[in-house]
Design a binder for these strands. Structure first.
Length: 946
RNA sequence: AGGCGCGUAGCUCAGUGGGAGAGCGCUUCCUUGACACGGAAGAGGUCAGGGGUUCGAUACCCCUCGUGCCUACCA
């Protein structure tokens, strides 16, 4: 298209440039480079994901850094990839196959996993494609996937080493269980939402039972989950609660079961909540589990892994869904007259973060990472400043979380993921002592058949039974195991097929897979080739910066720090830049259910990737949520248009461009040119500094301000008279300046808006190479005097325009103006630029000097040290000018009063720094002068009027 | 309940111990040879409220109100 087009057409050029960059290898670092390295690993998006605003912000920031560093002379790697996202992906594919009436159990593990891979091949690349649309300069030749071969090796190595160091263990304890996903979840994977439930009060009869009389005593407990009472093994009361203290040690009969349970003293019970008496269900509540352990209570599990009542719940309730059972229990209690109260009650309930099903605390055997030593090392790395969190307000959050951290449950009862590299020997339990067949049956709770490689857990088994499958049908497809703690696992770097202790070939591999975050925790080094000692690893580890949202600070960042510290003996990254969360204009998280999602791809289609990226950068102030507004994207599209048209204008004067570097011009450079050269030097300096401090919004703001309001509004306007009607030698200097500044602008903007800058670059500069291969501007020459001098110029022009605007003088009308200067310097500057000022203000006659005398019928305005008069002759509207002046005087008098108050305050004079006092004095003098001039003018107007 | 933020122009947001800024919107004027996705000139704020520190507070401290998030708990 080129610059002949009226406006920039993103859709026409974006793909063209992207594929050209990629083809030319601009995204791939040079392996033999001696430049300093700079590396970023992308937070791998879920392979199921499609680009949302969070990704877009995250990726834009990384791309800005990547391009900036590359242009600044670094050997840059931005390594991309995706995460296999265990539960999420499995859920997606399960949903797909359910349309055909299939489920994963019917398909079997092997076939199902093949299906997921197939799905991944077909749809998994979507987000990658979307990152390309955004313009991301990722090195796609190094793209990784958390389940690919190399990363799986790393996972295995880490698992085995942790196992060998006894940092891994299996344990039976209460875990968060998702009855729909059929898997354990880590603490972090549970989301708490407030929901309205009911608080029931239930009477438990004290023993002995006094049948049929009024004398029966009761203790009344309160619960929100009456169905769990079937698994109660105690009632707890506060030891000093005198309503109940006399009952401690006595027994009650648990209604509906007939079981006898004890009343125990427990200081953690809050006497003011409910009835003050707490039912204790160690099998289904985390607090109750703790109480149970303390008091050595039995554990009765009444809910199964698919959320149904187990055999322990009794014949009447067995097999019921937990919520159905709740209704039935409540009805039964009511009938027995034991339900004394039920009221609405708001409480937070844990939900599965993937499928939103209410989680069920269940007793289960799982794998855990012993986290304490890893966590304290990870804390040390941040405390010692080896890793910097930016902004640092996150430090405290990080420490607090790491302090309270519990062991990490890493096993998941799903199929898509890294299968745990651990085996069990059913014959000797890995201690060399062979057991007999019937004992094996006993240890492995469920019957084992070895006709298929399709192993499922006990929970899955009960789920299948609930769907109506018979036992025989299930074991036709599956081998069902639940391996108790007593069996010692074997973990090795390579697959094994016999027990190292007893050589049995009946060993069984652990069917569970690892938490997705286990492999993500290794991402910064596994993607670079670890455990091999690769060149990439040597060059690019530790990575320079990690860019991420705070929502995965603990899921991911903390664990990477632990794993990096443990296995690389070094930090995984030096800086962690934590950006804001993108919210809607009401400050809410964007979510499908809220219907407030803005799709980045729609933004790109509508406004172009550049405008969208620039808006994101401008929004990315630190330590704040981003409330996204589409209007702002539109504003930045206008900015791009402005840049486009300015470039087009400059290109028109190409013929006057020479090879002479602008810095070789000395006296030939007029004031505006020196000023704009100084401006671009300043802007380059600021942009570099702000990017270095991760102040993307400031960098974007500086560039916007300079390009629009300095370069376009002033410099280009000033050059026009010369370009239209000037001499050729004057044009040469100006045109060279224009091209020079434009070139620097394009370079400075490129990390923010890669496409449009590349397009203009190629149209304006006959350079066939890419803008990506050029250097980022830094260390440009300053012209310090130009800044101050140009202010006189600007004051003069805007002063005259002010009068024109206020008095509504038609812009096409030429006027006269007089400017009284208060210094020689000001006079010289204005004299030198007389014609430019006249042109910009449409003056036909302009007088400048110290001795200018204001003519009678002129309007006046004072701009800093300039007094500007516009003689109006017949044009003068006395009434409106009078009104304007009175208003101005009123304002000034207010200011005088304020400054005066300060300058007569002795405490101020005594304590304030000298420069502040001096400033106030100067201000006072100027104000007094202004006020006098205006009073004078009002006087003159009065005489005219009269 | 504890912790961390936030409250600044109509809207979305920057910002600073020395009488506040941007973008969009609004008002008036202008289709002048890069650009109406434009130009010029404006209006608009008790910087949530109250107290304190200070010569001086929108900024620092405390309290209140409003609002958002995080962590834990909610029997």
């Amino acid at each position: 298209m080129g610059l002949l087009e009226k406006s920039f057409k993103p859709e026409v050029v974006e793909d063209k440039w992207y594929s050209r960059w990629e083809k030319n290898g601009f995204f791939t670092p040079d392996p033999d480079s001696d430049k300093p390295p700079f590396s970023i690993v992308i937070p791998p998006p879920n392979v199921t994901g499609s680009l949302h605003m969070g990704h877009a912000l995250n990726a834009t920031i990384q791309d800005i850094l990547t391009r900036w560093k590359k242009m600044s002379g670094f050997n840059v790697l931005w390594l991309p990839g995706t995460d296999h996202a265990g539960i999420a992906t499995q859920n997606v594919v399960e949903k797909e196959i359910s349309k055909e009436g299939l489920d994963r159990y019917k398909m079997g593990r092997k076939a199902f996993i093949e299906m997921v891979w197939k799905w991944k091949a077909e749809y998994g690349g979507r987000i990658i494609h979307q990152l390309k649309k955004l313009g991301c300069a990722c090195d796609w030749s190094r793209e990784r996937f958390t389940l690919d071969e190399g990363l799986s090796m790393a996972v295995r190595e880490v698992f085995v080493r942790l196992f060998e160091e006894e940092l891994l263990y299996r344990d039976d304890r209460l875990i968060n269980w998702c009855p729909r996903c059929h898997t354990a979840l880590s603490d972090l994977e549970v989301e708490y939402d407030e929901i309205e439930g009911r608080l029931y009060s239930i009477r438990y009869p004290l023993l002995p039972i006094v049948k049929g009389t009024e004398e029966q005593e009761y203790i009344t407990i309160a619960t929100t989950r009456p169905e769990t009472m079937l698994g109660d093994t105690a009632v707890a009361v506060h030891p000093e609660d005198n309503r109940y203290s006399h009952l401690i040690g006595k027994y009650v009969e648990l209604p509906l079961t007939g079981r006898k349970i004890k009343i125990v003293a427990e200081p953690t019970v809050d006497p003011s909540f409910g009835t003050g008496a707490l039912k204790v269900t160690p099998a289904h509540d985390f607090n109750d589990e703790a109480i149970g352990r303390l008091h050595n209570l039995p554990v009765v599990s009444v809910i199964t892994e698919d959320g149904q009542m187990s055999e322990n719940a009794g014949e009447r309730y067995k097999g019921l869904d937990r919520y159905e059972c709740r209704k039935k229990v409540v009805a039964d209690l009511k009938e027995l007259g034991l339900l004394t109260d039920q009221r609405k009650h708001l409480h937070a309930v844990g939900h599965c973060y993937r499928c939103k099903t209410i989680i069920e605390p269940l007793l289960n055997i799982q794998w855990y990472v012993r986290i304490e030593s890893l966590a304290s090392e990870a804390v040390r790395l941040v405390k010692d400043g080896k890793i910097r969190l930016i902004p640092e307000i996150w430090d405290n959050n990080y420490y607090a979380w790491m302090k309270d951290i519990r062991d990490w449950c890493i096993s998941r009862q799903i199929w898509w993921g890294h299968q745990i590299p651990a085996w069990y020997c059913p014959e000797c339990r890995n201690n060399g002592d062979k057991l007999q067949g019937d004992i094996i049956e006993h240890i492995f709770h469920k019957p084992v058949t070895l006709n298929d490689n399709n192993i499922i857990s006990g929970g899955t088994y009960s789920y299948l039974r609930s769907t109506g499958m018979s036992h025989d049908e299930i074991i036709k497809h599956s081998k069902i195991i639940s391996i108790p703690k007593e069996v010692k696992p074997i973990s090795q770097r390579h697959d094994i097929n016999e027990c190292p202790a007893c050589q049995s070939r009946n060993i069984i591999r652990d069917p569970d897979v690892l938490d997705t975050w286990f492999s993500s925790a290794l991402w910064p080094f596994s993607t670079l080739g670890w455990p091999e000692n690769t060149k990439d690893l040597k060059t690019f580890y530790p990575t320079s910066v990690l860019v991420t949202g705070f929502d995965i600070l603990f899921f991911w960042v903390a664990r990477m720090i632990m794993m990096g510290g443990k296995f690389m003996n070094d930090v995984p990254f030096r800086d962690v830049y934590i950006h804001a969360l993108v919210r809607d204009s009401g400050g809410h998280k964007m979510s499908k259910s809220r219907g407030n999602v803005i799709d980045p791809l729609v933004m790109i289609d509508k406004y172009g990737a550049d405008a969208f990226r620039f808006a994101l950068a401008a929004f990315a102030a630190q330590g704040r949520d981003v409330r996204f507004s589409e209007k702002r994207v539109e504003g930045y599209r206008h900015f791009i248009n402005k840049l486009w048209n300015a470039s087009k204008f400059i290109l028109n004067y190409k013929e006057f461009r020479t090879d002479k570097p602008v810095y070789e011009y000395k006296d030939e450079l007029d004031l505006p040119s020196r000023w704009i050269l100084n401006g671009i030097a300043l802007t380059a300096q600021e942009t570099n500094r702000e990017l270095g401090e991760y102040h993307f919004n400031d960098a974007a703001g500086s560039l916007y301000q300079f390009v629009w309001h300095e370069f376009c509004d002033w410099y280009i306007e000033i050059t026009k008279p010369v370009l239209y009607k000037g001499k050729d030698e004057d044009k040469e200097v100006i045109v060279n300046c224009l091209f020079f500044v434009l070139q620097k602008i394009l370079l400075l903007l490129h990390p923010f808006m890669p496409f449009v800058t590349e397009e203009i670059w190629n149209s304006v500069f006959d350079d066939s190479s890419s803008i990506m291969a050029s250097s980022y501007p830094a260390g440009l020459q300053f012209y310090p005097d130009a800044e101050v001098k140009m202010n006189y110029f600007i004051d003069a022009v805007s002063g005259i325009r002010h009068i024109r605007g206020e008095l509504n003088i038609n812009p096409s009308l030429e006027i006269k103006a007089d400017i009284r200067t208060l210094s020689n310097e000001a006079e010289a500057v204005l004299q030198d630029n007389l014609s430019a000022i006249m042109k910009l203000t449409k003056c036909s006659d302009l007088n400048i000097g110290e001795n200018i005398i204001r003519s009678k019928d002129s309007a006046v305005t004072i701009k800093n040290s300039l007094e500007i008069y516009v003689p109006l002759g017949g044009l003068l509207d006395v009434k409106s000018e009078m009104a304007r002046l009175k208003k101005e005087r009123e304002k000034i008098e207010g200011e005088i009063a304020f400054v005066n108050k300060k300058l007569t305050n002795e405490d101020f004079l005594k304590n304030a720094p000298d420069n502040i006092v001096e400033k106030e004095r100067e201000k006072f003098d100027i104000l007094i002068q202004k006020s006098q001039k205006i009073s004078e003018s009002i006087g003159i107007l009065k005489t005219i009027k009269g």
